[in-house]
Each structure stands twice: as structure tokens, then as C-alpha cells.
Amino acid sequence: MEHTPETIPGERRTFAPRTITVRLQPKEQLLTMPREKTVLQVLRKLGIRPTTAIVVRDGGLLTPDREVLPDDELLIRIVTSSG
């Protein structure tokens, strides 16, 4: 899936990029961002090391290699405690 609008050859329709929704904890930020192909790519896009956050979809944990689907809703919880 491309991240920028594209025009399909032979057609005049322009498509917006598919997005995903990310809830970031503990800041409780809600982000809408272009869909990335994998969990690892989402984490990289957000500048998060894979071993510093758990990633949850539909109540289940995801490893960094798992595919991210258009319109996915992910919870990303940073687990590094301060102090």
C-alpha cells in the first residue's frame, strides 16, 4: 500500500492512502497515520525501539514481524519506567 495518493493507470480516480489508528500509552495520544506493512515499520516510524513497547491488536500481542492491515487499531504501550 502506498503512503501518498496515487492515480491508477487508465483511470482518473485518485485514492487517499489507507491509514491505521495508534493509541500511544502512557501519553494517551491517539494518532492516525499512513498504514505501514509491519509492526516493526510502525514502531520505526514512531521512533520506538521494539523492546521498549508492547503492541496490541484486538486484545492480542503482536511481534514486530506481524503484518499491519489497513484500518488496524493498534495499542502501543511504552514499558520503560522512569526513575
Partner: peptide, 23 residues
Amino acid sequence: EFETANYAFLMGIEHHYAPCPYS
């Protein structure tokens, strides 16, 4: 810390994750 966080999630432990306001 990552391993403990995964354990807490899988065991359904509700925990306090907001950082200390003074830290």
C-alpha cells in the same frame, strides 16, 4: 522490563503505568 511487561499483559494484571509527576 519488556519481558515483565509482556508477562503483566498476558496475566491480565491491571497496573499503574502513568509516570510519577516528579520523576
